[in-house]
């Protein structure tokens, strides 16, 4: 369930097709995931999971997989 919500945040923030290889997504490796896109993603995740992320976590959030690790700190289970 949370995996789907997590994926949805990426799809909507970066306008990605469902067929994307999400596990390979990395910050600043495609046009949409720039610094502005990053903050859109953070906003989407905060809304979706009802959390407020710390600044250090926003900065560390560098890949799709790393993001899941970070969200676990906010009691989001995958």
């Amino acid at each position: 369930m949370n995996e789907q919500k997590y994926k949805k945040a990426f799809i909507e923030s970066f306008n990605l097709p469902d067929t994307t290889e999400f596990e390979k997504l990395e910050y600043n490796t495609f046009e949409e995931w720039d610094s502005i896109g990053h903050m859109q993603l953070v906003a989407a995740l905060e809304t979706e999971f009802d959390i407020m992320m710390d600044m250090d976590d926003i900065i560390d959030f560098s890949t799709y997989e790393k993001g899941k690790e970070i969200l676990k700190k906010y009691e989001v289970a995958f």
Binding site: M39, V42, A43, E46, T47, M52, M55
Partner: peptide, 10 residues
């Protein structure tokens, strides 16, 4: 501003 600006940006 970092916190409230994030709320506003949504």
């Amino acid at each position: 501003i970092q916190y409230i600006g994030r709320l506003m940006s949504k």
